[in-house]
């Protein structure tokens, strides 16, 4: 299992478009991906889970990847968030 903390910088938080981008990015790696936000653990491959968490701009989240290609997956997820999630 690998994990890292990161701050969400895009302007609207994790709304529909960034959530779609995030799921498309991490799904192909095969490992389980979770996001810990405000003490809640979210299945980061589920759009329903990700959206209903209402992750706001500027909040800190922890991404955990567990399983196949976990390191590559975490790296890709962090790079996407740091690039502003398509904004």
């Amino acid at each position: 299992m690998v994990s890292a903390k990161v701050r969400l910088t895009n302007s609207m938080g994790l709304h529909l478009r960034p959530a779609q981008l995030f799921i498309r990015e991490v799904t192909p790696y095969g490992c389980d991906v979770t996001i810990t936000y405000n003490g809640r653990v979210i299945n980061a491959k589920s759009i329903m889970n990700l959206l209903s968490a209402c992750i706001k701009q500027g909040s800190e989240i922890e991404i955990k990847c567990n399983g196949e290609n976990e390191e590559e997956c975490l790296k890709a997820a962090l790079a996407l968030i740091e690039s502003g999630l398509g904004e």
Binding site: L16, R17, Q20, I23, N43, K45, S46, I47, M48, N49
Partner: peptide
């Protein structure tokens, strides 16, 4: 993207 969101919601592994 709103429409593509519906596709992703239906294919959501939890759903």
């Amino acid at each position: 993207e709103i429409l593509m969101g519906q596709v992703m919601m239906l294919q959501d592994p939890l759903v």
